[in-house]
Each structure stands twice: as structure tokens, then as C-alpha cells.
Design a protein around this nucleic acid. Structure first.
Lengths: 226, 226
DNA sequence: CGGAAATTTGAGCAATTTCAACATGGGTGG
DNA sequence: CCACCCATGTTGAAATTGCTCAAATTTCCG
């Protein structure tokens, strides 16, 4: 676990801009910030493993982090791909078990702000606005998972992929006129719960949905948006 | 929406025994109880519909309630089958939208305690113990949904069914030596996201997993438990 | 005892996975 | 700067699995 403490780089701006803490005054935000530390992970570094004791919440300040679980069959399932501003481990912190249900690994070099669980919980109780927006955040996560279930049940892989690409474009703030895939296709396939081959075969079919993918270049043809 | 107000029957015991409110004193529990009302629904009565404005949380005091959503394709997806003690609409209450994302219908005659949203939220903020156990409850729900996703990705329908039957046996407090299915097979199939025919064909295969189903009678052969 | 609803069974179909071979591409050492 | 190599991605063909449509049974209730 080759992580390094980062004292120099200042990512407080990113932490401050997180919706969860947006209702706080600057001083209150500092209280959060002082409770934790910022670490640097190299590509492929493990941030935590399934089964580890949960010590902190992980707030991504920079980079991409893959969260995954391994099933009994040894199969690896990508639960989420997290980016700047995402908070990992929000849910697990409130489960009975204080063990990580998932593992997390840096997909790219990453800066991660690690906030001890107790510090988080204390402050959560102290500030109603944080508690409320945390609840919303949990609820939204839950809702999105449910939507994914429904998608998988009612849509073809091509449709799911199209939907995902549009979502990526939006949440990553990319141009619909053309952008480069932010992840490797293998990762995307894993995230969508399909095989790489299936994704590969779905790519050409995306044209029927107004999307062209050549290599890692994506273009939406109905780019009414910027 | 043929629901009837129920003044006579006293279900306060059921409400009181809900984990969410277990940390409260009897007086505090009463405060919750007085904020809402108990209603009776006949089999097939609609409790709320997808798109309705959310007014209350729904706590099942008796009976079975199906929660479902309808997708664009008009397909109906059962998200959950709720029973005595379950709280419906926990999550939606904290979404941006104040509209029901799902519909709910009484599968059997049911008694439902309806707790207005504002009353719930107020009391939630007031009592830390309720807030905490509510968070746990949300987290657990989220975790279980994730597990279902993983199941669907890694297990065959037969395995999923076996897993579900064991879960039902446990959560409904039934005897592993033999019990009657608490729901119609159509409902179970819908709950598990499979076709009735698929479920039907999976039943014989359950023997490989130590389960025999004849009609609506279920027996676990490895009944080490009571 | 009827008749409707629920379940089972059959046969063919469609989609995805699997296994295997092949192509591409980016980066490194010579 | 180029050849080579490993990782990544694509393509083909066969095998699985669950779905769909249809028909036969069984169960449930009045």
C-alpha cells in the first residue's frame, strides 16, 4: 500500500466544494478538513481492501478510483468508478459490520482525503445541514442503484451503454460534440456488468442511438447541448 | 383507493417494536404514533401510485404490500415485498423530487400506519438515536440492493431462488423443516426479476441445493436450524 | 361442479457469455 | 527512430441461459 502523505498540495478547494459540506461555514469546513489528511496514491495502488476494518471515509480530490467486490466465485465486480468530489464508503460506515464490503484501487494517480469515521460521525450529528444532505446523498445513491437494476432488466446492452456514455459525458462535464473516454473499455465493461467482448460488439450498434465511437473518441450526433 | 380509517384496532405494539423507534422512550414513541394514523386496505387496494406526491411514510402493521415501478416500456418491476414492520418510502422522502418513484398495492388485506413526512423529519432531527438507526436502515437497504445486483450477475436463477427462499424463511420466522410460501409464485418471480416460467422450471432443480418445493410447500433438507 | 386464475410444460428464439484467434497500439530498449 | 512486446481491444463461432408464445394442468373458490 504505497501511499504517501501529502502536506504540500492544497486540495481544500475541492473538499470545500463538495455538496455535502456546502451548507457549512468556512470555519466548520475547516473543522472537517483538520480532522483528516490528504494522501497520494499511485496508479494501481490499493486504497483499502474488502474485509479491512473501516477507518475513514475517502474523498477523492483528484484521479479515478475503482470500487469493487469479489464474489465467492472469485469474480470481480466493479460497483463504481469514482472521481473528483466523490465520497467512498458513505454507506458501509453505517452498517453493523465495521468492515469494508468492497475494495478500492487507484485507476490513475490519485489524491484522496481521508476522514476518520468518528470525526465524520461526530460532525454529522453536530450539523443538521450536513446530516440532511448526507441523507439525500445516501438516498440518491440508493435510487441510482435501483435504476441500474431496472435498466439491466429492461434494456439491451447497447441501450445501457448509450445511457452510460451520456451520463459520463454529463457528469464529467465533457463536450457532447466529441470527447475521449475517461476510462479504459475494460473498466467500462466491468462497471456495466458486461463482458468486454459484449461491449465491443455493442459499439457499432450505438450509431442507431446517435452515438459514434471510434477508438476512444465519442461523438453524440444529437448534440443539441454544447 | 378504498382505504378506511381504523380507530379501534390497536397496533401500537407493532409500531413500537420497530427497530427504528426502539431507542425511544414510551412517551417519545407516542409522539410518533400520535402524528400519524392507521388505515385499513383491502387486498388489491392501491396505497399510493408512482408519480403521486409523497405525503407520508408507510409502516406496515399487518399484511403484505408490493412496491413496484413501471418502466417506459410499460413493464412492471417489483422492487420489494413488504411485510409487518417494514417501512415504505424511507428513501424517496430524501430525494429532491417529492414524488413517489414507486407504486404500492396491498397484496393481502393490510393495516398501514401512515406517518406524515414532516412529522417524521422533525422527530428524526430531534432524536439522535432515531437518526442513527435510520441511517443504518438506509445503509442496509442500499447494501442489500447491491447484493442483489451481484447475485443477478454471478448466480443462476436457481441459485438466486434458493438464496431467496432461505432468506424468506429466516426473515419471516418460518420453520426450515417445512413451510408454506407466503406469496404467490407469480409475485416471487416478479420480485426476483424473472419470468414465472423460469421460476417454475427452477423449482425441480432446487433439489440440488437441498430444497424441495411441492406446490407451495417448501422443505430445507439441511435443516440444522429449527 | 364449473370457471377463472395460477402454475407447469414444451419448443423455438434471442441475447450474452465463453473460448479462441487475431489486430492494434503505445511505450521501451536497442 | 524503429522493431518488438505486452496490454488492450476486436472478431468469429459455439454453447448457455433465460425469454416468449402456446398449450396443457392444476388449484382455488363460489
Amino acid at each position: 500500500m504505497a501511499r504517501a502523505y501529502l502536506s504540500t498540495t492544497d486540495h481544500s478547494g475541492i473538499i470545500r466544494s463538495i455538496p455535502l459540506f456546502s451548507g457549512l461555514t468556512a470555519e466548520e469546513q475547516d473543522s472537517f478538513l483538520k480532522s483528516g489528511n490528504l494522501y497520494f496514491y499511485n496508479r494501481k495502488d490499493i486504497i483499502f481492501q474488502q474485509g479491512d476494518t473501516i477507518r475513514s471515509l475517502y474523498i477523492i480530490a483528484e484521479g479515478i478510483v475503482q470500487e469493487f467486490s469479489r464474489t465467492y466465485g472469485g469474480r470481480e465486480i466493479t460497483q463504481n468508478l469514482h472521481r473528483e468530489g466523490d465520497i467512498i464508503c458513505k454507506t458501509e460506515v453505517f452498517l453493523q459490520d465495521d468492515l469494508h464490503q468492497t475494495g478500492a484501487v487507484a485507476v490513475s494517480d490519485a489524491h484522496v482525503f481521508e476522514l476518520p469515521v468518528h470525526a465524520f460521525k461526530n460532525n454529522l450529528m453536530k450539523h443538521n445541514c450536513v446530516a440532511t444532505s448526507f441523507l439525500s446523498s445516501l438516498a440518491e445513491h440508493s435510487f441510482m442503484k435501483q435504476q441500474e437494476i431496472e435498466q439491466k432488466m429492461t434494456m439491451t446492452t447497447t441501450e445501457i451503454l448509450a445511457s452510460y456514455l451520456r451520463q459520463v459525458c454529463k457528469t464529467h462535464g465533457l463536450s457532447a460534440r466529441g470527447f475521449t473516454l475517461p476510462f479504459k473499455k475494460t473498466l467500462i465493461a466491468s462497471r456495466l456488468g458486461m463482458e468486454l467482448e459484449t461491449l465491443s460488439r455493442a459499439l457499432p450498434k450505438l450509431k442507431q442511438h446517435g452515438i459514434t465511437v471510434k477508438g476512444s473518441q465519442v461523438v453524440f450526433h444529437d448534440a443539441a447541448l454544447s
